[in-house]
């Protein structure tokens, strides 16, 4: 599907609203890392992935693996926005008998294809799915979203070695490089150095996206990755944790925090105001 800037930005705004609503229904949740990938999910679900909300299990669908499984609310927000299930269900996050657990679960939620929640494991799962597609001669893509803090897990790099060795060009990896993890800035907890150089050394085609909260830049990166037929691609998204909502973008630590129902209306207005200016001045600048 062609890229339409206006449509994608509106979808990203809708996803952010849904994220805030979802977390507000419980009062607390993984706000920061959900908001930081809203634009990526808008692009993937809006105009990139071969998926059908009316038939979540269709055989030739592309897969999205959110290895940073705590960003489940972002995925649910996107799935609801695309009509996989009724938006009212968003208000059941983490409540008894919900189909929306904090971490993504393929057996519980329509549209979720891989269960994650122990960091690093999604990298291998995604590589396995892409490897099976490669063996089957399938033209499907598998998309993988890793957190930057998650790169501290050794399994990510085992999977990276395998992905490069088997030249899984049908696996497109995103790193949500928002620079923060639960306990603080990644540079203070355990420095990652240059994420780009590390993946390059592992044999990846590296695409660095200066503003990982800009739908146009994300879309262009995905197209570049899909055109690359030699090496597997990684898209390093330089994002803002809590992007799109000033309160969270400016919060020192918004990994898991509260969203009050009373604040929702003001957040929605703040987001609606971004529809015309591409999000300028709202904490989405990289």
């Amino acid at each position: 599907m062609d890229f339409n800037r206006k449509e994608m930005d509106l979808l990203a705004i809708k996803i952010r609203k849904n994220i805030l609503r979802t977390i507000a229904s419980k009062g607390t949740g993984h706000v920061g890392g959900s908001l930081s990938i809203a634009d990526t999910l808008a692009v993937l679900y809006g105009c990139v992935m071969n998926v059908d909300p009316a038939d979540p299990g269709k055989k030739d669908r592309d897969l999205l693996v959110i290895s940073k499984g705590h960003s489940g609310p972002a995925m649910y927000a996107a799935l609801a926005a695309r009509g996989y299930f009724d938006e009212g269900i968003l208000d059941t996050l983490n409540k008894n008998n919900t189909i929306l657990p904090s971490h993504t679960d393929r057996l519980k939620t329509p549209g979720v294809d891989m269960t994650t929640g122990s960091l690093g494991q999604g990298a291998s799962l995604a590589a396995g799915a892409a490897f099976a597609d490669q063996l089957n001669g399938s033209s499907n893509y598998t998309y993988l979203i890793l957190g930057d803090g998650e790169l501290e897990e050794g399994q990510v790099w085992e999977a990276a070695l395998f992905t490069a060795h088997r030249r899984l060009t049908n696996l497109i990896t995103f790193v949500d490089a928002n620079g923060k993890q639960l306990d603080g800035p990644t540079d203070q907890v355990c420095s990652l150095g240059s994420i780009e150089k590390k993946f390059e050394a592992f044999g990846f085609h590296v695409i660095s996206v200066e503003n990982g909260n800009d739908t146009r830049q994300i879309y262009d990166a995905v197209m570049e990755a899909r055109a690359e037929k030699e090496l597997p691609s990684v898209i390093v998204l330089h994002t803002v944790k809590g992007a799109g909502v000033r309160k969270y973008a400016e919060m020192e630590n918004c990994h898991s925090t509260t969203v009050n129902r009373e604040e929702l209306e003001a957040f929605y207005q703040e987001l609606d105001a971004q529809a015309d200016d591409g999000g300028k001045g709202t904490g989405k600048e990289a």
């Binding site: 891989m114 291998s124 799962l125 590589a127 799915a129 892409a130 099976a132 063996l135 395998f162």
Partner: peptide, 21 residues
């Protein structure tokens, strides 16, 4: 032959099985 990476191997296998392997 996957290499000396058992944790990755189990994840790969699980991912492959989701695709029917």
């Amino acid at each position: 032959d996957i290499g000396i990476m058992e944790a990755n191997m189990v994840g790969l296998g699980a991912g492959m099985s989701v695709k029917g392997k």
